[in-house]
Design a binder for these strands. Structure first.
Length: 390
DNA sequence: CAAATACACTGGGATTCAAA
DNA sequence: TTTGAATCCCAGTGTATTTG
């Protein structure tokens, strides 16, 4: 169904015939998915696990995580956590390609991924058996449990649409909420091919409105005020604040004291203030960036998304946070649109070129805390012995 | 009844990207 | 370059159903 055409000059979204079209589209999707599942079920008696599975792939639970990494048990090998790397994604694609050849089925991973068990709640029903077998098949060669693989497939193949909402999508959003709010999230996710989480957030905004955001101009006295309050509310000394995660209650107190949303304060703390206070040396930003490039070149990362920024902080002196590194590196990619898909070395070349062809080389501002006040440390130009940045 | 497992929903940090 | 809004997505929680 071509929604662009249907909705191109529709203003009145209350028109019931529009929702009828939505229902037809949804029904088409249901039928397509169900047909594909039926096809898989027809081959169920030939589906047997013939390969070795690590212990963590034997759990039958796909939709919620029931296995945990048993850190203490050294006999059991561990599975990977955090996001899937490029290599893992390729492995899944390869496994799927093998699957459709071996079982002679059409390439309809999306139908598999978005199918939901709506009627029969029996975990050992043929549908569920098929779902588990296919997931196990896709998990071959991966250090992941079944839940992780299934979630990955659902996310990347079931709801592949990303990015900002188009006008047509916004209209569909309004139509679905107007006619059937109860099922709107479910329906929209299916209709738009989008992750439901984003739709829930939109919904929340419809009900609660956007939070008001006030501008905050950071100055030394303001930063001092913030720091003193942070120490007071967390009952920590300055040194104890380093890399500390604070309870939400602490942030909420700060929110009311500073009259500013705590998420914003949080960001300012870890992105800037934390680094400025705890890094105790003269750092030139471009040197820092070049060091990141060197580290990434020596890493096994293949594409940008593989980068695990938290791990990078190990290579840097005390005080740096991963969000700071990320922020200072990524700002060089502004205007570059294809960096997510390009091989990492190519992206790094681009960044290096950008660093080398611009004149400014800013220093990191660092601060010292004395007698209850923050003060700026000034580094004299051309003094050697300060920078230990390799 | 407890355990296992499904779907629906939520919290909140991480990431992306366009506008200031 | 920086900022802020929007989105992405891991890791949970709540509740219903089925099995043993």
């Amino acid at each position: 169904m071509d929604w662009n055409e249907i909705l191109s000059d529709v203003e009145d979204i209350n028109d019931p015939t529009l929702y009828e079209k939505v229902l037809i589209a949804l029904d088409d999707i249901y039928c397509e998915d169900e047909d594909f599942m039926q096809l898989l079920i027809s081959k169920l008696d030939t589906m047997h696990v013939t390969w070795d599975q690590p212990w963590y792939q034997t759990s039958l639970c796909l939709t919620r995580c029931t296995v945990t990494n048993y850190e203490d048990n050294e006999k059991l090998e561990k599975f990977r956590t955090t996001h899937f790397t490029n290599q893992e994604c390729e492995q899944i694609k390869e496994n799927w390609a093998n699957f459709i050849t071996e079982y002679d089925v059409p390439d309809m991973l999306q139908s598999f991924a978005r199918w939901k068990n709506r009627d029969c709640k029996n975990p050992s029903s043929p549908h569920e058996q098929v779902r588990r077998f296919v997931t196990a098949y896709l998990a071959q060669g991966l250090e992941r449990n079944m839940h992780q693989v299934y979630q990955y497939v659902v996310k990347h193949f079931g709801t592949p649409v990303k990015g900002n909402y188009s006008d047509v999508e916004k209209k569909l959003f309004n139509i679905c909420f107007y006619f059937n709010e109860k099922d709107a999230v479910k329906n929209l996710s299916l209709l738009l091919g989008r992750n439901p989480r984003g739709i829930y957030k939109q919904l929340h905004q419809v009900h609660e409105g956007k939070p008001e955001r006030k501008k905050l101009k950071w100055t030394l006295p303001l930063a001092t005020k913030f720091l003193n309050l942070l120490m007071e509310h967390s009952q920590c000394s300055l040194e104890e604040l380093k890399y500390k995660k604070f309870d939400k209650s602490v942030w909420l107190k700060l929110e009311s004291d500073m009259d500013q949303q705590y998420q914003y304060l949080q960001k300012s703390w870890y992105n800037a203030l934390h680094v400025q206070i705890f890094v105790k040396q003269d750092v030139k930003i471009n040197r820092l960036r070049k060091k990141i490039i060197r580290i990434l070149r020596d890493s096994p990362y293949e594409v940008w998304r593989d980068i695990c920024w938290k791990d990078l902080t190990e290579h840097f002196p005390d005080g740096f946070t991963h969000t700071f590194l990320y922020k200072n590196f990524t700002c060089l990619l502004v205007g570059k649109t294809d960096y997510l898909k390009q091989p990492l070395p190519k992206v790094l070349d681009y960044i290096l070129h950008k660093i080398n062809t611009r004149r400014k080389n800013k220093r990191l501002r660092t601060l010292t805390y004395e007698n209850g006040n923050l003060e700026l440390i000034s580094y004299k130009k051309n003094t050697k012995n300060q920078s230990k940045e390799e």
